[in-house]
Amino acid sequence: MTYLSYFKAECLALFRTKQRVVNALLFFVMVVVLFPLGIDPSADFLSPAAGGIIWCAVALSVIVSLESMFKENYVDGVLTQLILSGLSLPWLMLIKVGVYWGAMVLPLLILTPIFSEMLFLPSDSLWVLISTLLLGSPGLFLIGSIGAALTVSLKQGAMLMVLLILPFYFPIIIFSSAAIKAVQLGMPYGGLLALIAAISLLALVVSPVMTSLCIKASVR
């Protein structure tokens, strides 16, 4: 086993189970649709709220897509073999999260302009929304992988994972929607983007180590 062969295997496996990614994207769509249906379909409400709505939907669908990322590997004993492979487990985890991120973020970026139009987001804010997604979503995936690893041994861990992981998403969501609001009000937003990037970078350092600690503790 090498890092490259693991990367290839993960890409292939995710490609074979692409329905999962599609489900997560449909979930994203459903959450977005809930807001105009449940609260107010008028542009007055939606236009300033669009960034926040999209970010909440992204955060939830990321959790949904990550919840089962280690489950089958755990049951089949793949995680055991990864630990015993002699390769560094944090790097393997980083590869896996990276593959998941790549598979989710591209379709999300395609969906974003459509939904920002449907939510009446002013078109000059769209680029900020896309930048926050690009900078913030790695953080979501990295933090989420810790939660997925924590609950891997549970048959029904989705609820617990949401409870554990969502609080850690709050800063990213707050700063992202604040950046989008800032650009709508004509205020500077560069600092907020830098904060989002900082959180993602911090997660990049912490998450693979924490994830592999959880995996090692779960595989016994």
Partner: peptide, 13 residues
């Protein structure tokens, strides 16, 4: 053992 480890990790985070 797993509960110990998990709680420690979440506390640190």
């Amino acid at each position: 053992a797993l509960a110990n480890q998990a709680a420690a990790i979440v506390s640190v985070l």
